[in-house]
Amino acid sequence: MSTGPAGHVARSTIRPYSETLDVTRGGAPLRTFLRTADGVAIDSVYEPREVVYDSSRADFREPGSGVDLVAGEGSDSGAGGGQRAPAFVVAHGFTGHVDRPHVRRVARVLARYGAVVTFSFRGHGASGGRSTVGDREVLDLAAAVGWARELGHTRVATVGFSMGGSVVLRHAALEEPDGGRVDAVVSVSAPARWFYRGTAPMRRLHWLVTRPSGRLVGRYGLRTRIHHRQWDPVPLSPVEAVPRIAPTPLLIVHGDQDGYFPVDHPRMLAAAAGEGGELWLEAGMGHAENAAPDGLLRRIGDWAVTRAG
């Protein structure tokens, strides 16, 4: 394993950013391991913004939207940059990882609106460490946000699903997170409070996390290595974190058919956010990235482009 630029631990030889990408016309994705503040290697992928050339004009437009993507004075200079485009940092749900089909689908849709960083949380996929199920994962997200900043993006939006949804809330609530504050936050299918066992899927998840036999299933069946220690101290809950996010724009998205967390969870989060948050209750939608249709992801992309600017 070799050491990449800026202290990254690379899984293969990766050329420096400036040699790899044309910052105005996109380029090849980058894949590397990032080091978190506590030393965990996080498998991460950077994908430039998807742009097309409009032969009728000397600029770029987001496919099908008419949104001007041309990089110019005062614009983001990162890969696939554009005057109003943020970079999206996507935080997957528990037992997901960067190569899961639905994580890749989320990245493909959001790449129409900005560059995208995806990563595997600790204990998931090829990342090191063990999952703490939403506690120290805030350090993983901070490393990914910091990478996006390092690559030249001046506006960053975080988009989290389920466990990742709780992590983006806690990360945004920190006064000075590593990588700096983000410019917009989208939390999809997140819990409002910890230790919820009110649905059958959540009771199964607690068995997976708290029992040795469950952790074996997670390790060998789900490629998820779960830490055996309980939280000490218990981290700030999502509903406690939400009031601290303002003035950063916040969007809470939840399906009314979510089998893990019923709609009282997003309503609690929205109530805690007050005027600082926006709630979308999606009719017929289930849980997290697997259930999020492309149309919803496009609406999230539009929202982030508008709010993060």
Rank of each mutant, 00 (worst) to 15 (best):
T3H: 09
G7E: 05
H8G: 13
V9L: 06
V9S: 01
T13E: 13
E19Q: 11
T24Y: 04
G26I: 14
G26L: 13
G27W: 07
A28I: 14
A28S: 13
P29K: 10
T32V: 15
L34D: 01
R35G: 02
T36S: 10
A41E: 06
I42K: 08
I42A: 07
D43R: 10
S44V: 07
Y46L: 14
E50N: 09
E50D: 10
V51P: 00
D54R: 12
S56Y: 05
S56C: 12
F60G: 03
F60W: 13
R61H: 12
G64R: 11
D68C: 12
A71K: 02
A71V: 14
G72M: 08
A79H: 09
G82S: 15
V89G: 03
G93A: 13
F94V: 13
F94L: 08
G96N: 08
R100I: 10
P101I: 10
H102Q: 11
V106Y: 04
A107Y: 04
G114R: 03
A115C: 13
A115Y: 03
V116Q: 00
R122H: 08
H124K: 02
G134Y: 04
D135C: 03
R136A: 01
R136I: 04
E137H: 08
V138M: 07
V138R: 06
L139Y: 03
L139M: 14
D140C: 08
D140R: 07
L141G: 00
V145I: 11
R149H: 12
E150G: 03
F161G: 02
S162G: 14
L174A: 15
E175G: 09
G179K: 10
D183M: 09
D183C: 06
V186K: 02
V186N: 05
A192F: 00
T199I: 11
P201N: 05
L205W: 00
H206P: 07
R211H: 15
R215Q: 11
G221W: 10
T224I: 07
I226M: 04
V234I: 15
P238V: 00
I252K: 03
Q257R: 10
Q257M: 06
G259Y: 07
F261T: 01
M268Q: 15
E275L: 12
E275S: 15
E275M: 10
G276E: 00
G277E: 04
E278L: 01
E278F: 07
E278A: 01
W280D: 08
E289A: 07
A292S: 12
D294E: 14
D294A: 14
G295Y: 05
L297N: 03
I300A: 06
W303K: 03
W303H: 06
V305W: 05
T306D: 15
A308Y: 00
